[in-house]
Simulated scan of single mutants.
Amino acid sequence: MAHIIVVGNEKGGSGKSTTSMHLATALVRMGHSVGALDLDLRQKSFGRYIENRKAYAEKHDLTLACPDYQDLPEIDSTALEPGENIYDHRLSAAVATLEPTCDFILIDCPGSHTRLSQVAHSLADTLVSPLNDSFVDFDLLARVDPETNKILGPSVYSEMVWNARQLRAQAGLPPIDWIVVRNRLAAQNMHNKIKMGQAMEDLSKRIGFRTANGFGERVIFRELFPKGLTLLDLRDIGVKGQMNISNVAARQELRELVKVLKLPGVEVDF
C-alpha cells in the first residue's frame, strides 16, 4: 500500500504548500511514484503550484519531475451509504484511485479545521506539521504560561491529532509518525528561538512528536510559485544567477528535512 504523508496544521501561512511541493517533487526526482491531493477546496495552493509547473514545462518544452495530482472526485449523493459523509467518500475514492500506482500519497491540508482535514489525519502514516517559529503558531499545539513559559496543556490541533491516533489504533493501523517542522528559523540564537526550542522539546516528550528544522524565510520561494518550480529544478533548467549562497542553503534545508522524515525506501541523493 502507498505510504500516506499528510502535511497539516490549522494555521495559514506556515509553509504547508511550499513544504508539500518540495517534498513531493524531491520524492519523484528520486524515482518514487507520488500521488498528490489538495484538501483546501477553495484556495488549492498546492494544486495551483502543480498546475503552474505543468504549464511552465509545456511552454518551455521541458521535462520536469511532477507528482500525479488529482482533484477530489465529485460524488452523486445517491451513491452514499446511509449516514455516510460525502467528504469522507470523496477522499476515500481519491486515495483508492492513487494507491495502486503510487509509492507515496502526499495530502496537503487547509489551514483550518475541516472534516476533510480531520479524516486525512487519521489516514497519515507520516504527519508533517510546519509552523512558523513563533509562539503565535505554537499556540496551536499547546497553551503556555506567559510568565514561566511552562506548558499548561495541549491545544486544539494537538487534540485533533490525538483523536486521529485513537482512530488508527482502533482500526489496528500503525501509529502516526508525527514531525513538527520549524519554518522561518532565525539565523542567530535569538531569545525567542531559544525559548521556542525549549518549549518544543518539552512538548514533544509529552505528546509524542519529533522535531525538524524546515525552511528559512527566503524570497526565492515566492518567486518559484508562479512557475511551479522548486529549489531542485534551478540548475536543471539553467536559471542563471539563482544558485547563490541563500539558495544553496535552502537546498540543504530540504535535504535535511527529507532525511529526518525517515520515509520507507527513501535514500536521499540530491
Rank of each mutant, 00 (worst) to 15 (best):
N85M: 08
V268L: 06
E58V: 14
Y87K: 08
I194K: 10
H121C: 07
S77C: 10
R42L: 14
P146Q: 12
R255D: 11
G47C: 05
R255K: 13
G153I: 13
K11N: 09
Q170M: 07
M243V: 03
Q198P: 04
S122E: 06
D236P: 01
H89M: 09
Q242D: 10
D38S: 07
L37M: 13
P82S: 09
V180K: 01
K54C: 02
E201Q: 12
N183Q: 13
V136R: 08
L91F: 05
Q118S: 12
E159V: 14
V156L: 13
L152H: 07
R48I: 05
G153K: 14
S33Y: 00
Y49F: 14
K11F: 08
D139F: 02
V239G: 02
P146F: 08
E58F: 09
E10P: 05
F138D: 08
D40W: 02
T25V: 15
G265T: 06
R29G: 06
F138H: 07
E81L: 12
Q170N: 11
S77D: 15
V248E: 10
E267Y: 02
W162T: 10
G214Y: 04
P154S: 15
R210V: 08
H32Y: 08
R206G: 05
S158M: 09
P146L: 09
E147T: 13
L91T: 03
M1G: 11
V119C: 02
F104H: 04
L72D: 10
Y69G: 01
Q252A: 14
S20L: 00
W178V: 05
I220Q: 00
C102E: 01
D202Y: 00
A26T: 09
F270N: 08
S112R: 15
M196K: 05
S77G: 15
G111N: 12
C109T: 05
A120Y: 01
Q166H: 15
N183G: 09
P73Y: 06
K16R: 09
N9A: 05
I4S: 00
E267H: 07
L229I: 12
N163D: 14
V119H: 08
L27W: 02
V260Y: 00
D61K: 04
A164I: 07
D76R: 08
G8Q: 03
N132T: 10
A93M: 03
E99W: 06
R182F: 07
L231G: 04
P67N: 11
S129F: 04
Q242W: 09
P73C: 06
A65G: 13
V266W: 01
K54T: 14
V156T: 14
D61N: 07
R143Q: 13
D61W: 01
C66F: 02
Q166Y: 12
L232Y: 03
V219G: 00
D139R: 10
A142C: 11
V34E: 10
M160A: 12
E10M: 11
L173I: 06
I220H: 01
R251N: 09
A187Y: 12
R53H: 04
V128I: 15
A186Y: 03
L98V: 08
S77K: 11
E223F: 05
A65P: 13
D76F: 06
R165A: 13
Y49H: 10
R143V: 11
F270C: 10
D137N: 09
